[in-house]
Computed example of a mutant assay.
Amino acid sequence: MTMMAVLTEARTADRAAVLRSRIARVEVVRDLAAAEPVWRMLEQTGQYSSPYQRFDFLSAWLRHVGNAERIEPFVVIARDAEDQPLLLMPLGVEHKFGVRVASFLGGKHATFNMPLWRRDFALSADVSDLEALLDGLRRAGGADVLALQQQPLRWNDLPNPLAQLSHQASVNDCPVLLLPVGAAANDLISNSFRRRLKGKERKLQDLPGYRYGQARTQADIDRLLEAFFRIKPVRMAAQNLPNVFAEPGVADFIRQACAAELAGGGRAIEIHALESDAEMIAMYAGVDDGSRYSMMFNTYTLSEAARYSPGLILMRHIVDHYAALGYRRIDLGIGSDDYKKLFCKDLDPIFDSFVALTGRGRIAAPALAALGRGKHAVKHSPALMRMVQRLRATLPR
Rank of each mutant, 00 (worst) to 15 (best):
A306N: 13
I254R: 01
Y308W: 15
V287S: 06
A260S: 13
A285W: 04
A285V: 06
G311H: 08
E247F: 12
A251F: 00
I281A: 02
F297N: 09
V250R: 04
A282E: 07
S294K: 00
I271Q: 01
A263T: 12
T301V: 13
Y308S: 12
G290K: 06
E279F: 12
D288Y: 04
S294H: 10
A305K: 01
Y284P: 01
I281G: 07
G249A: 08
S309C: 13
L302E: 10
Y308V: 02
Y300D: 09
R292K: 07
H272Q: 09
R255L: 03
Y284M: 14
Q256V: 13
A257M: 11
G286N: 07
G265M: 11
N298V: 14
E261T: 15
L274E: 02
I254Y: 02
E279R: 03
G264D: 15
A260L: 03
I281E: 02
G311F: 09
G265C: 09
G311C: 10
A282P: 10
I254D: 08
A273V: 11
F297E: 06
E247P: 02
D288C: 12
L302Y: 02
A285H: 01
A251G: 04
A263M: 10
M280R: 08
N298E: 11
R267G: 01
Y293Q: 00
T301N: 06
Y284I: 14
Y300C: 05
S309E: 11
A273F: 12
S276N: 06
A285L: 15
